[in-house]
Amino acid sequence: MKVLSWNYRGNYNATTVRALKAEIKGISPDVIFLCETKASASRMEEVLNSIKFADMCVVEAKGITGCICVMWKVGFMIHQVEYNKNLIAVKVFDALCSWLLVGFYGPPYPAKKQKGNTFTWARGRWGSSAIKRRLDRAIASISWRLAFPKAVVAHLGAINSDHAPILLDTKPEESFTHRPFRFEATWIRDNGCNSVVEKA
């Protein structure tokens, strides 16, 4: 199962909807978690139909802020468990096991955040010259990781948003990638090197 998570930054913009469709076409996710869509439930219903997904759970925007939504394709058994303005929890009934998927969106205003340190990663010198980032992530319980040991999380390229989508894949395809040729200087010391090169 592939789960796409994206801080969508408002879906009244037609280019943002096209960007979502492009992501769906490229990676073919089964479940999508969108946050900060700034949309009503009826607008999210339009998006659901335009991307040809089967069902959704949505907490609509208050005025022009907020809105989180989980959408899924036909053939997936997913039930809503809990929701509020910051999270949607759904139960996924997978062939292997049932598990909870929680999409979370924290408040965008610093005064409303109680999250400890501002940054989760730093590199370089101390002080203002250090490179600092707050990295997005996916987390899982130990039992979930045991059930899906090959699961991977990837950060995708940001399209029409200053936030990069995150992709969780519980069953990544094992594909062989060709490694580029690298010349090792120590090969020259081997007496058989010349004959190998000549035969090639």
Rank of each mutant, 00 (worst) to 15 (best):
N7S: 11
T118G: 14
I68T: 00
A140L: 03
G157S: 12
P165D: 00
H79A: 14
S161V: 02
A151M: 02
R179C: 05
C67A: 15
F104G: 02
V58W: 01
S141C: 14
V81G: 08
I64T: 12
V17M: 07
P110W: 07
F183D: 08
I24G: 03
R182A: 13
S42F: 08
L4I: 10
I139C: 07
V47K: 02
E174V: 14
K25S: 15
G10T: 02
S98A: 03
Y8S: 15
F33L: 01
K21H: 04
F176V: 11
G106Q: 07
L48Q: 04
G26Y: 05
K199G: 10
S128P: 12
V3M: 10
N160A: 14
D30H: 09
M77E: 15
E184L: 09
K171F: 11
C97M: 09
S40F: 06
I27G: 07
G66C: 02
T15S: 15
D55C: 13
T120Q: 02
K91F: 04
L20W: 05
A200K: 08
I142A: 14
A138C: 08
K150I: 11
D190I: 13
A138D: 02
C69S: 15
V59S: 01
V102I: 14
I139W: 04
T37Q: 05
S50A: 15
E174L: 14
A147H: 09
V153C: 09
V17T: 11
R182S: 11
N49E: 06
E184P: 05
L96S: 10
T16K: 15
T15A: 15
A185H: 04
G106C: 06
M71G: 09
P108I: 00
R43Y: 10
V153M: 13
A19N: 00
S195K: 10
A89Y: 01
G66L: 05
I88P: 03
F53E: 03
K115C: 15
F176L: 12
W187H: 04
M56E: 07
S161A: 02
P29C: 14
E173I: 04
